[in-house]
Amino acid sequence: MHLPEIDKFAHLKSPLHSWDARVKIVSISTLILSIVLLEDIRVAFLGLVLAIILVFLSKIPFSFVLVHLRWVLFFVLALFVVISLTVPGNLLIKLSFFSISREGVRLSLLISLRAISAALLVFPMLGTTRFYLTLKALQKIKIPAPLIQLLMFTYRYIFLFLDEEKRVFIGANSRGWVRKTNLSSLKTIGSLVGMLLVHSFERTERIRDAMVSRGYNGRVKTLDEFTLSAKDFIKASLIIAIALLLNLFRWIR
């Protein structure tokens, strides 16, 4: 089964690809945190420009980024509309019984800029390293082991789960079932999804057996595949300095 993968472009060569995954995650996470804390629209816009530059430097095609960003954009748009219409303040536009305030537009624009920048930065952070290396990097930076194992197994088995889901629905279709929006169809979908979950649970038991038989004792251990160089620290210093500078105005004020 072909599925779009977050690390589809991890094989490319760029300053972000060659950056040590651990330092890259810490640095870009700091930048994301800095951007979501911004309160000035002009600085938030600068944050968006920075995010676009980093995506550009990562050589990940913008078409790929936009396809994966569409759901984020959908939510941002929904938020934009709701906040613009609900936040009270100086009247900007009045259409029938809708009134849009200046403060509402300002706040929704600020939230949209922060959200889009943060979502964009995920691509240079996670899309420039093989996913398994990202997991190892997360382990190294002391993210809790259960969370990493959850991510690891989700990533490993999502493909199988989707294959299984396809087979279950093909089985139902082969016996004349057609997906509709009526109650009977929903009941069938409920049963099929329930069966999928039971299958998944049974599989987890078998996987556990396989893990235990090879010495698993609650912690997934892997070999270290990272080497730090001066370049990694230079890149990290640059990104963290930018992250601090973006918030400098707020602190000074």
Binding site: F131, Y132, L135, M152, F153, Y155, R156, Y157, L160, R203, R206, I207, D209, A210, M211, S213, V220, T222
Partner: peptide
């Protein structure tokens, strides 16, 4: 032990 279903045996990335 080599289990029947290799997808249960191969759980790492």
């Amino acid at each position: 032990i080599v289990f029947q279903e290799p997808d249960n045996q191969l759980f790492m990335p």
